[in-house]
């Protein structure tokens, strides 16, 4: 046997062993994904064609669950509220996160301290945070309204007690809570922009705004793209803070889709109908994400350096 042959065989068995190692490492994650995500998703899709209350035998109802959606005022309201939440909270978070990242991307003393501070809300429990914000929002005794009154606003908003202001209140709190996380992603993006581009621009006489507009923004667009996809998906899943802060109220003012799914499934025990809503939510998120990917080419620049 020639040495070349031995080497070849050796490398093949090595490759096989490596592949096995890779699969072994992937296995725990795949197992978790299949049992906890994939199977429930498929099951929910199947359930959406049934009428099932968890106790009595399930009945096949075809598309009736989906037809009911079109007539259900509760579904329409929660869909509208979800879109409202998404449409306001996503851009707000992106703008604030970008702004904070730009601020925190400077070499000044104590910058690590500030970076930690802005990341703090992210690691706090959402339940605790929501309870505290509820106190801040208290219409008569809360610090927010006390402040507003002290600067001359006689009729400050009722926040979570008001139909008009409950959703803005939830959005404001959510933006504050999540902005730290996206700031870190933006910060990483900012630090990946090569210094020489700015140097060149400075030599060409560009001012700070021009540098931001023509260097930072385009160079950051892949990061912005990632952030917007993550944010949109997360915004459609909003639930925890709403349960704690407003419980869907006042009236149905903050009733969002996931809250409505929970209500249909665990209060009314309509598992089929709840699954139909969940399927629609899934489709909605999928479509929005596909559209985002389609639009990617128009504004996202991938530069090879």
């Amino acid at each position: 046997m020639s040495t070349a042959n031995i080497a070849k065989r050796k490398s093949r068995s090595l490759r096989q062993a490596r592949r096995l190692t890779a699969y072994a490492f992937l296995l725990p994650n795949i197992l978790g994904f299949v049992t906890l995500t994939l199977i429930p998703i498929v099951a929910a899709f199947g359930l959406s064609f049934l009428d099932w209350d968890f106790a009595n035998p399930a009945k096949f109802v075809g598309l009736r669950n989906f037809m009911r959606l079109a007539r259900d005022s509760g579904f329409k309201i929660s869909l509208k509220n979800t879109i409202y939440y998404s449409a306001v909270s996503v851009p707000l978070t992106i703008v604030f996160a970008l702004f904070l990242a730009a601020l925190l991307n400077q070499r000044v003393r104590g910058i690590k301290f500030f970076r930690t501070i802005y990341f703090f809300p992210e690691i706090s429990s959402i339940i605790a945070v929501a309870v505290v914000w509820n106190m801040l929002y208290h219409p008569t005794m809360g610090p927010i309204n006390s402040f507003l009154r002290s600067i001359g606003i006689d009729n400050p908003p009722g926040w979570t007690a008001s139909v008009k202001w409950a959703m803005p209140a939830v959005i404001l709190m959510s933006v504050w809570k999540q902005v730290g996380y996206y700031t870190v992603i933006f910060l990483a993006g900012l630090q990946g922009i090569p210094e020489q581009l700015y140097e060149a621009a400075t030599i060409d006489g560009a001012n700070s705004w021009q540098k931001f507009r023509y260097i930072t923004l385009p160079m950051l667009s892949p990061t912005t793209f990632l952030v917007s996809i993550l944010l949109v998906i997360n915004s459609f899943k909003v639930f925890d803070q709403i349960v704690i802060m407003t419980d869907g109220g006042p009236g149905r003012a903050t009733n969002v889709l996931v809250y409505y799914i929970y209500y249909q499934a665990f209060l009314l025990f309509r598992f089929g109908y709840a699954s139909a809503i969940a399927t629609v939510l899934f489709a909605l998120v999928l479509i929005v994400t596909i559209v985002q990917f389609r639009m990617e080419k128009k504004w996202v620049h991938y530069t090879m350096m």
Binding site: G158, A161, S162, V163, G248, G249, P250, G251, R252
Partner: peptide, 12 residues
């Protein structure tokens, strides 16, 4: 309960 909260808070 939802309508009650709307009436009592003067939203409607």
């Amino acid at each position: 309960s939802e309508e009650h909260s709307m009436i009592m808070t003067g939203q409607i």
